[in-house]
C-alpha cells in the first residue's frame, strides 16, 4: 500500500507446531474490514512465536495483502500459507491496536 501505516510490524512465525493456533474475525464487507486476531491458542505456532497478540490487525500474509478480501478468503490465504511445504514460516504484517 502506498499509504503509510503507523506501527506496522513484520512478524515471522515458524511452523513448529501442528497448528497455527489463531482465531480471526473480520474481512471486507463486515464491521471489521481487515482480519483481526481474537484468540491465540496455547501450543500453536503463533503462541510459540510470542510476537502475535490478540487485537492485532493482519495487513499482509507472505506479502499478500488482505485488503478487500472477504473473511473466508482471508482465512483461506492464511490456512494455505500454513499448509504449504514450500516455506517453514509465515510472515505476517500486523498493526498494533491503536
Amino acid at each position: 500500500s502506498p499509504i503509510p501505516v503507523p506501527c506496522a510490524v513484520l512478524v515471522r512465525v515458524m511452523k513448529n507446531a501442528s497448528t497455527l493456533g489463531i482465531a480471526i474475525e473480520g474481512g471486507a464487507n463486515t464491521q471489521q474490514p481487515l482480519p483481526r486476531i481474537v484468540t491465540i491458542q496455547k501450543g500453536g505456532s503463533a503462541h510459540t512465536c510470542g510476537r502475535l497478540k490478540v487485537g492485532q490487525v493482519i495487513l499482509e500474509v507472505n506479502g499478500v495483502s488482505l485488503r478487500g478480501r472477504e473473511h473466508k478468503e482471508a482465512a483461506r490465504i492464511i490456512a494455505e500459507a500454513f499448509k504449504t511445504k514450500e516455506k517453514d514460516h509465515i510472515d505476517f504484517l500486523v498493526v498494533e491496536p491503536s
Binding site: 482465531a23 474475525e25 464487507n29 464491521q31
Partner: peptide
C-alpha cells in the same frame, strides 16, 4: 459512519 453501522459482524475462524 452510517455505512459502517449497516455492515454485518464478521464470523470467526480458527486457524
Amino acid at each position: 459512519r452510517e455505512k459502517r453501522l449497516t455492515l454485518p459482524p464478521s464470523e470467526i475462524t480458527l486457524l
